[in-house]
Structures are given as C-alpha cells and as structure tokens.
Computed example of a mutant assay.
Amino acid sequence: MKLCPDRRMSIRMIAETVNADKETVRKNLHDKLNMKKVCAKFVPKTFTPDQKLVRQQICSDFLERLDEDSELMENIITCDETWIFQHDVETKRQSMHWKTPASPRMKKAKMSKSKFKAMLIVFFDINGIVMTEWSPEVLTTLRERVRKKRPELWKNKSWILHQNNAPGHNALSVKRYLAARGTPVLEHAPYSPDLPPCDFFLFPKIKSASKGTGSSQWKR
C-alpha cells in the first residue's frame, strides 16, 4: 500500500481514495507500515534562506572576533525584557498535584486578564546583573550604571552592548543615541532567543514568585 503525497489525509479519506474499508487501511498504516499520526513539531521560527545566511555570517564573525580577543565575552553586556503580570490564579504547572484514580480532579478557573503589568528590563554580563529597570527609557541610566559597576570597561571604552532584534532596540532613535556616544553594539542573529537567555533562567522564576502578589509592590 502506497500513501499519497498528502500526509494530512485521514484514514477515511485514504480509504475512499484506494477504495478499501477503513479497518484495512488502519491495519496497513499501523501494523505493516508502523506509522502513526502526530502533530507537526513546533519551532520558534522557520528561517528563510536569507535569514539562515545572515545567522551563519553573524556567528562566523563572532567566532573570528573571539579568536582574536579571548576576553571579548567579559566585555559584552546583554539585555532582555519581559512583561510582569499580576495573576491571582495559579499557573497550570503550579496547580499540579498527586491523585489516585478514585480522588476527584481539582478545578482551576480560567486566568483572567491582569489588572496590572509592568515591563522589566534586565542588563547583565558574565559577572552578573548590571541593572534592572521598570521603564523602557533606560539607555542613559545604563551608561551611568556601567560607569559605576564596571569601571574598567567604562574607562577602557571596551564594553559592548548586546540586544535582541525587538523593534524598540532597532529603532532609529536608539541607533542614533548609541552611535553618538560611541557605544558599540554586537549584532544579533535573527530569531535567536538562546543568545539572551533570560527567558530560560531568570524570567520564569520571577513570574512564578510574583503570581498573586499585590500590584502595589511592583509600582514605583
């Protein structure tokens, strides 16, 4: 039995196409061909050929710079931002519990829209957190914080700012501000959340701890 190119066809559609009953088609698929129907694997982004080329070039350039300057990683200050919400309802993971076949399953109401939210921006380097800020207008504050917390990098003008490709980071006003003050920026590969990894090690812990917390705690 040979399948048609459309792998999304149902057993019923295949049976109608090959003029066979559904049980025969099912046995052929599962028992003889050892096939099962699964959902498409989710990936953050499917790259275009141009995006793949840019990603390769950026990574190659960075590796070359790293070979020339072994201390390059110590000069990079990267950042990421996230929205912090106030939710009184537990997350799905927080509501997990052990149960026996006889015990009833707990109920959890649908999460309502948060009454309060604030944008948290975190700047950090290889040595730790440089600055946290709740306002998107942070570049002036960041420069002052680098001067105080990383005096050697400030004195040598060797610190490099690394941002992702969010629209706010690529705004013309931001680029002009950084260029006017001689702040070098490390180029970010397209759709690469693994490079500023706050989404993996920092933000989930902050959001988990803030669930159900009164909004007044997060306001200035």
Rank of each mutant, 00 (worst) to 15 (best):
V54L: 15
P196N: 13
T46L: 08
L63M: 15
R176M: 13
S216L: 10
Y191Q: 10
K45I: 04
V38M: 12
D88A: 07
P49A: 07
N156C: 06
P136V: 11
M111H: 06
T100H: 08
L153K: 05
E133L: 02
Q94A: 12
D6T: 12
V89Q: 12
T100W: 10
A102G: 06
P190E: 06
S112V: 14
P193W: 04
P5C: 02
K117G: 09
L186S: 01
P151W: 04
V146Q: 06
K27R: 15
I76S: 02
E71V: 03
N164Q: 06
G212H: 10
R145I: 03
G182R: 01
H97C: 13
A180T: 09
F203P: 00
Q51Y: 05
E23V: 13
T48Q: 04
T132P: 01
F200T: 06
D125V: 08
N28Y: 14
L161Y: 07
P5R: 05
G214Q: 11
G214D: 15
M73A: 12
K92E: 12
N156T: 10
Q57F: 10
T91V: 09
E133K: 10
M96K: 15
F42N: 04
V38N: 11
K107D: 05
I129E: 07
D31C: 09
H30E: 13
M96D: 07
I14R: 04
C39Q: 14
D21V: 06
R105P: 00
Q163M: 11
P184F: 03
P44A: 01
L172N: 08
L66C: 12
C79H: 11
R143K: 07
K148S: 13
N156L: 02
W218S: 01
P136F: 07
K92R: 15
L186W: 00
I160R: 05
I76G: 03
S208V: 10
N28T: 11
W154E: 02
Q86V: 15
R93T: 13
Y177D: 04
P136T: 14
N156G: 00
T140S: 15
T24Q: 07
V89P: 00
I121Q: 05
A102Q: 11
A109W: 05
K115I: 08
K211T: 13
L161T: 04
R150T: 03
M9Y: 08
M119E: 02
P44Q: 08
P136E: 00
S210G: 12
G128R: 08
W98N: 04
K99E: 07
I76T: 06
T48N: 08
A180Y: 06
A179L: 15
Q217R: 15
M106T: 13
A171M: 11
K149D: 05
K211N: 10
N164C: 01
I11R: 09
N28M: 09
E137F: 15
A166P: 04
L33W: 08
R7I: 11
K155W: 03
S10L: 09
S60P: 02
K205C: 03
K107Y: 03
S135H: 15
L161Q: 02
D69P: 07
R8G: 09
L3I: 11
V185F: 03
I58H: 11
F200S: 01
K36N: 09
D61L: 12
